[in-house]
Nucleic acid binder design. Structure first.
Lengths: 208, 208
DNA sequence: AATTGTGAACCTCTTCACAGCT
DNA sequence: AGCTGTGAAGAGGTTCACAATT
């Protein structure tokens, strides 16, 4: 199959969420026009995105909400559950553990890791904090496939390299720094300060 | 001036951060090639990004680190401080208040707002939680220009519309839902579940 | 009559390649 | 000799427009 762009993938995830809401409201059918209105994009964009994966609609009618939801669910790899490791148990890490929306039905934090000796061995909920050295074996026993990295910026690259050696192929990075993906590792970053600075750029340039 | 793409703005923010680190290390000069290595992108990308704003380098030499840092600092609107309002004081909101990297030198949370009557009037640090109804007047007195929205998804659009009416032009949205920007309002979103689902998509499709 | 699915056109972003400076 | 700045080429993403289908 032709490589699908990242833009398409992120939009699919949004469609997935919107379809879930429509489904809960008992709506049976949605057209690309209606969904586009919800998403704030064009109908063609939606049709094009879906076309990479098949033909899910009925001409003259639209898409069956339940069917399309299920289809995207499967495309996104959500037919299975995913076990996460959280690396770096500071304020942000703790907030993520408690953050309700984060503990989605498909994602479960199964492993806590920190390098601070004072933290190692202590518990949060029913999870014990482990040292980085144990990562390789714990990744196997806990069947971890995604690591969430909330360590300080200066340690992020090093930690991600270690994760890669331990067999982790996907990382969600919260450290506000550029990290270079090791071979075969997917990294996505959430970087609040970049977002804020993008806003100040626009505010600043808009008032000139 | 020609409209600058969002990609360029986000990269400038990254260059800014890298230059800060180089500056602290006492490095005087950096070439586009060297900076590109740090950022994991091409040298032409960096030169092109900078070219939208002027010519800051010396041919045959490279860029003066301090000078380029200062220039980007100014482009990004960081010559001034920015006052933020935090709307929605749940777990995530509290984490953001405490999150050290968030309290950058240029950004300061000055106003807390929530709609829960039990929370209104209580304090976090030296800030009191105010009701949404007082927003309009408080935005003025506290000189707020950016709102950070950490309310539940179902309230996000409504809250953002109210923020817009109160004169807010820039929003950083953490609610995991699509929001349509009111006229003249810049919105940027951090959406952890989209990032995670992008990762599961890649993990899933990579193993086929 | 309405809406999908899609090739083609269009637009935007990235990379190339080289003239111009230091 | 080395590196920037930039027009042109290339790659990639979005929108158009219309035939196909219900």
């Amino acid at each position: 199959m032709k490589r699908i762009s990242d833009y398409t993938i992120q939009r699919l995830s949004k469609y997935h969420r919107s379809l879930e809401i429509l489904e809960k409201r008992g709506i049976n059918t949605v057209s690309s026009k209606e969904l586009a209105k919800i998403e704030g994009i064009t109908p063609s964009q939606i049709r094009k995105d879906l076309s990479f994966f098949g033909s899910f609609g009925k001409r003259g009618v639209g898409y069956n909400v339940i069917e399309l939801h299920r289809k995207i669910h499967s495309i996104m790899g959500l037919d299975q559950d995913w076990n996460l490791a959280l690396i770096g148990i500071g304020n942000l890490g703790k907030a993520l553990i408690e953050y309700h929306s984060f503990v989605n039905i498909n994602f479960r934090i199964r492993l806590l890791v920190d390098s601070n000796k004072k933290k190692i061995g202590t518990k949060i909920g029913d999870l014990t904090i482990h040292p980085l050295e144990k990562l390789k074996s714990l990744v196997k026993t806990e069947k971890i496939s995604i690591a969430v990295v909330t360590v300080p910026s200066e340690n992020a690259q090093k930690v991600i390299n270690i994760l890669s050696e331990a067999g982790i192929k996907a990382v969600l990075n919260f450290a506000p720094t550029t990290v270079i993906p090791p071979d075969g590792v997917f990294i996505r970053s959430e970087d609040t300060s970049i977002q804020l600075e993008a806003l100040t750029y626009y505010l600043n340039s808009h008032n000139v």
